[in-house]
Design a protein around this nucleic acid. Structure first.
Lengths: 147, 147
DNA sequence: CTATAATCTGAAAACGATTTTCATATTACT
DNA sequence: AGTAATATGAAAATCGTTTTCAGATTATAG
């Protein structure tokens, strides 16, 4: 039914390779298309979306939404190895998107599964809040300040 | 600068009261507008968005995005009382949006703050994964099935 | 109670991300 | 080669949200 394509295409490979080359970095569909603006196999935005969607389905790429950003973020998932312990923290004050390496999330997963009968997909975890720098700067009061 | 308005308006009150009447339920801006389609103080979508934004800023209402849903969700925040221990679980298989009452999230907050210098805003927490029913039905394999 | 200024309302237009359409090009398989 | 299946991408269509702007409402002064 949703058998992965039997066709190999230059654009598909290029897209995946580009994502993989980012070493954990995340990009939007538009950024991918822009990256291939001049490249040999130029890739249109429509096609980028199609490949990204496919890659997400196949588990090779992570897709997540960050409130504040207008478009989805895509990130190479490295076969789950360097990825399963790698989560996102979004600072609501300065807009920074930080990475969090923390085994504690496994405990949460275990707990929620055991006590609340829900199996968390850690890939999409995004926590919102305030980063260290912003905490220093604004003590604990103030609000606004989108980067 | 962002002084809350000194004006009281029928639409603003109606919007807040409607949210509050939902007892923890969440709605989209469109749903709010639709709800007031016939009502005495009919409220246009534009105005609904404006009031919701305001209510979110003032902390009376929670706003969160759920991947898969195309629009933002708004939920009465009840002055932080019945709300601070109330989080969301989104089943990626059946689409259900479940509620989670769990003190463990406080531990996470404490840990991430202490060890990772980041203060999590628990309001926006949304965990993705698979609900109990879907786990039963599909064992552990299959994928698709948006509700 | 009337005037005037500040604020609100909402229809319509603008926007921006994503999806769909569709004609064309590419690839797989015979 | 030849045909069918699949991929491509420009343009159009969607859809949620924001902006514009003229007209309505409310606050406050006089």
């Amino acid at each position: 039914m949703s058998r992965p394509t039997r066709y190999s295409t230059a654009q598909g490979k290029a897209t995946l390779e580009y994502l993989a080359s980012l070493e954990g970095g995340h990009v939007t569909a538009a950024q991918v298309a822009e990256h291939f603006g001049d490249a040999k196999p130029s890739i249109g935005l429509t096609t980028v979306y199609r490949h990204l969607e496919r890659l997400v389905e196949s588990g090779l790429v992570r897709k997540f939404f960050v409130d504040g950003a207008s478009s989805a973020c895509y990130q190479y998932a490295a076969g789950d190895d360097n990825c399963s312990e790698h989560f996102h923290l979004k600072c609501e004050s300065c807009g920074a998107l930080l990475h969090l390496e923390c085994g504690m999330l496994d405990e949460i997963q275990r707990h929620v599964r055991a006590e609340h009968a829900f199996l968390i997909n850690k890939n999409k975890m995004v926590f919102y809040g305030k980063c260290a720098d912003c905490m220093k700067v604004m003590g604990g009061a103030a609000e606004n300040a989108e980067a």
